[in-house]
Each structure stands twice: as C-alpha cells, then as structure tokens.
Amino acid sequence: MAVGLTQDPVAADLARRTADFVRNMVIPAEEQHRGVARTENVRIGLQRAAKDAGVFAPHVGTEFGGHAVAPLTAAGLRALTHLEPR
C-alpha cells in the first residue's frame, strides 16, 4: 500500500501563514523584549494578532476559535515556531 505524503492545500496555506506570522510578529516581539515579556499586554497583543491573521490555536477545535487540524499537521505547525529570522 502506498503512503501519500502530499500535504493538504488548506494545511499548506495555514503553515505558510503561520510561518509568516512567526517571522513578522513573534520574532520581532521576542527581540524587542529580549525574550521575556514582562507584561500581559505583549501576550494579549500577540494572541489578538494571531486571531486576526487566522493562525491562532490551529490544533484547537473550531468551537474555541481554532482550526481543528489533525495531530500530524499540528506537529508540523509546531515545528515552525523554531524559525530563524530572515
């Protein structure tokens, strides 16, 4: 039996948007705060920006604002959090 390794186009789009969000929002915030956000405002702002970008909590069910992606897809998205700045 053949194993299909083609990524779902919806998951591929979510992965691209997540990578863009990490590069353009998360990494600059980490640099600005030297890796330690000392107020809740930073976290709240990043969560709001993630929701606006449509990349908030992709592994969480849609009833809670996520995308309910499959565990393997969620694992691939988590790997994106280790991106280096361009």
Rank of each mutant, 00 (worst) to 15 (best):
G4R: 09
A50V: 01
I44A: 15
A75S: 11
N24G: 14
T18N: 01
R38M: 09
A37V: 02
G45C: 05
A2L: 13
D8A: 02
Q32H: 05
P71S: 14
T81A: 07
A12N: 02
N24A: 15
A68I: 04
G65F: 12
V36Y: 06
A19T: 06
A29E: 13
G65T: 05
V26M: 00
V55L: 03
D8H: 03
R43S: 08
V69E: 02
A79Y: 03
D8I: 01
G66E: 08
A19P: 03
A29H: 04
G35C: 08
D8N: 14
A53R: 04
N41W: 10
P28S: 12
T39N: 12
V55G: 00
M1A: 14
L83E: 12
G35L: 05
T81V: 04
V3A: 13
G45M: 10
L80I: 14
R34T: 03
I44G: 06
K51P: 00
G66N: 08
G35Q: 02
V36L: 15
P28I: 11
H82G: 09
Q32F: 06
A79K: 10
A57W: 04
Q47F: 10
L77F: 01
V42C: 08
T81H: 08
H59Q: 13
K51N: 06
A49H: 08
G76K: 02
F64D: 09
V26D: 03
L46W: 01
A74H: 05
I44D: 10
A79H: 06
R34H: 14
N24Y: 02
G61M: 14
V60R: 03
A79F: 04
A2V: 15
A29Y: 04
H59I: 02
E63M: 07
Q47S: 07
R17T: 08
L5M: 08
A75Q: 07
H67K: 12
I27N: 06
K51H: 08
G4T: 12
T6D: 09
E30D: 06
G45E: 06
Q7V: 12
P71A: 10
L72A: 13
F56Q: 10
H59M: 09
E40D: 09
L14N: 00
I44R: 13
N41R: 12
A2W: 10
G4Q: 08
E30C: 13
D52A: 14
